[in-house]
Each structure stands twice: as C-alpha cells, then as structure tokens.
Design a protein around this nucleic acid. Sequence first.
DNA 1: ATATTGACGGGCA
DNA 2: GTGCCCGCCAATA
Length: 106
Amino acid sequence: MKNKKDNIFEEIYKIVKKIPCGKVATYGQIAIMIGNPRLSRVVGYAMSSCPYKDVPCHRVVNRFGELAKTFGENGSEEQKIRLENEEVYVEESGCVDLKEYIWNGK
DNA sequence: ATATTGACGGGCA
DNA sequence: GTGCCCGCCAATA
C-alpha cells in the first residue's frame, strides 16, 4: 500500500519533464493532468522549489502564457533565452503565443 | 505548534 | 460581462 499521499510534487515533476522542447505548458493544464485543476498553486510552488534540474520549469507558464518573473534574480531574462533557444519566441514582456507553443499534451 | 503566503485556476454571485 | 471567493499542497515566519 502506498503512503498516505505520494508527494504531489513528484506528480508535477513527472508531467513537466514530459513537456517536449519547443513547447510550453500552463500550470492549470499540468494541474489537470495531475487530477486536480485547483492544484495550480501547488504546481507553481513545485516549480519555485524546482529541486530537480530535470524539470524544465522555464517551459511552464501561467494561464496568460507569460513566464514566471520570479524564476531567478535576472527574472525571466534567462528563462526567455532558454525558450528562444528551443524555438519558442518570447516577447519582451516574457509572453509567448499559447496558441502556437501550448503543449497539446502529446 | 499555528497562521499566512505563494510562480494559479476555476466557479459562482 | 465583471468581480469576488474558494480550493489545494508545501514552505516560511
């Protein structure tokens, strides 16, 4: 039998690591994949923790499609570069075209 | 130990 | 159509 509850973080990381390069996913979408659309907050928190370097948190954006400015000291600057490095165009606002780069889940 | 916050999202009034 | 409130988990004060 399983523990009372497996770390929800692990569920999140598992999905985030599943994001293909050149694509981005929203917290809500990831949260839904976990099984609870309201876990969006936990998803964001898991990213802020980001203990696993295998988790491309820079590919995870909010529902507006903009990157997390709390990524680091440089803000979304480095994150923006990473996305552009993966063929993902990012605006100066740190916003990407969801309709173009949104991860379809496959 | 408890309370509040925190990279959000969705539902309801 | 707009605005406000609630929910979830973990970490920090």
